[in-house]
Design a protein around this nucleic acid. Structure first.
Length: 427
RNA sequence: GGAGGGGUUCCCGAGUGGCUAAAGGGAUCAGACUGUAAAUCUGACGCGCGAGCUUCGGUGGUUCGAAUCCACCCCCCUCCA
């Protein structure tokens, strides 16, 4: 493992990855010169992690690369409760079976990003259900709850709007979340000698709760470090596309869609994202920015970013597929593609609809493929010239797609808008 | 348990009997311009080719006509006990 513990914080600094730190000077020196154990938690709120989880997850890896031991915590217990931090409304509880299933999926995903076989600082995946499942309510209230002052808890910024805003509110269940997460930190300190918790900056309140609890229960000094929440320069929410969340699971977001997401990053964000989401040295990223600026041409950075992150998440094959399909659809001429190229498009993750018919109305096809949500909208798309079929734009709503419109007597690529494609196969 | 306030189309939020598929803003989508960027401009934004149909927490009523009035129910918030 790389032995650069003194450079770790400098690197994090240069990347803009440090939002807040507790006892900053002590924390820095604590992690310099000796191997430490830290943790980051991931609650199962869905059956996959998404790109929002990438920053803390990669941060764990950054610490591991610097020689420290990362613990990735899956919130089998906290996922049953729901973190209220900065959420404007109470959340729906999921059943134990469902959350249990998600825990396993997340565990498998987390394992992909950390090294579990590197000796003394091998990563460990832990589940907080392990130490809360058999904890009785009375013991919890007496041994843990006693250390918390409600007066202090309601001061936390993370729950303030739920407490103060008219029309909002918070259940005791969610209000208790902070205590559970704090208990995790104390427990990991006891079990693994863990001395640092990292998380998004929305986790600050929960993390400091754990720092206090660890001191009270075990007289241990532990630290907290938060990472910035990823924002976009135009103020829009990061990590969403028209079709929803960008997931890490390739079955939920194909490598192609994933790659495309990063490729369309705004110039104003791309260099920052390179620092957040890749392991490319900050100095190299700055060089790239200079070069892009000097070139006066379209920047290279988006391609570097998309390639790096897609490789990280979907591996070499995923990147290759994503690039192949992107260049076919965006820069290639469809009529240049061979029959096997079309099959490859499908293999690479382009959305496909198989059609067992001789023909289909264009409007019907748009709705069927999900490119339009209703006939009315589909018509609008066609009328406004937003749709093309195998590159042809001379379309009317009454158009009927037949095999004679297809390539190799089977394939029809429908494009809606600037970057949404769908392959129809006549079978 | 008592008193009061509230639940409107993805979100916020107007609307208190017909002129309301429902103001305004945001988000989103499309087109133009571009670089699969940003900004800007234009348009769309319940469903339907259309006549029209279905929506305003739920159910039932009053009325020629209800998101708007009445009854009951469900949920949320505030204060009091």
């Amino acid at each position: 493992m790389a032995d650069l513990p003194t450079n770790l914080f400098k690197d994090l600094d240069l990347r803009g990855l440090i939002a807040q730190m507790s006892s900053e000077d002590e924390l820095r020196s604590h992690f310099s010169g000796a191997q430490r154990t830290l943790y980051g938690g991931f609650d199962p709120t869905a059956d996959s992690l998404h790109i929002g989880h990438l920053v803390p997850l990669l941060a764990l890896r950054r610490f591991q690369l610097a020689g420290h031991r990362p613990l990735a915590l899956v919130g089998g217990a906290t996922g049953l409760i729901g973190d209220p931090s900065f959420k404007s409304a109470e959340r729906q509880l999921n059943s134990g079976d469902i959350v249990g299933g998600w825990v396993e999926k997340l565990r498998a995903q987390l394992e992909q990003y950390l090294d579990f076989d590197c000796g003394h600082n091998s990563a460990v995946v832990v589940n907080n259900l392990d130490w809360t499942r058999d904890l009785s309510a009375l013991d919890f209230l007496r041994d843990v709850g006693k250390h918390f002052s409600v007066n202090a808890m309601i001061q936390k910024e993370s729950v303030k709007q739920r407490l103060e805003r008219e029309g909002a509110g918070i259940s005791f269940t969610e209000f208790s979340y902070m205590i559970l997460q704090s208990f995790d930190f104390a427990e990991l300190h006891k079990r693994y000698g863990c001395t640092l918790q990292i998380g998004g900056s929305d986790q600050w309140g929960n993390i400091t709760g754990g720092i206090d609890l660890t001191r009270r229960m075990y007289q241990g000094q532990v630290f907290g470090l938060t990472l910035p929440l990823v924002t976009k320069a135009d103020g829009q929410k990061f990590g969403k596309t028209e079709s929803g969340t960008v997931w890490l699971d390739s079955n939920k977001t194909s490598p192609y869609a994933f790659y495309q997401f990063w490729l369309s990053t705004a110039d104003a964000d791309v260099y920052r994202f390179l620092k957040y989401f890749t392991f490319l040295a900050p100095a190299r990223i700055d060089e790239l920015q200079m070069a892009d600026l000097a070139s006066g041409d379209r920047p290279r950075a988006q391609h570097v970013l998309a390639e790096a992150v897609t490789r990280l998440v979907h591996g070499e094959k995923g990147v290759a597929a994503a690039i192949r399909i992107s260049s076919s659809l965006f820069t290639g001429n469809l009529s240049d593609l061979t029959e096997s190229d079309f099959e490859q498009l499908h293999m690479d993750g382009l959305a496909v609809t198989d059609l067992c018919a001789e023909s289909i109305g264009l409007i019907d096809a748009l709705v069927r493929t999900g490119l339009a949500t209703s006939n009315r909208v589909a018509r609008e798309f066609v009328d406004s010239g937003a749709v093309s079929v195998n590159g042809r734009k001379d379309l009317v709503p009454e158009k009927n797609l037949t095999k004679s419109d297809s390539l190799f007597n089977r394939f029809v690529v429908i494009k809606r808008g600037k970057k949404l494609f769908h392959l129809i196969r006549f079978i």
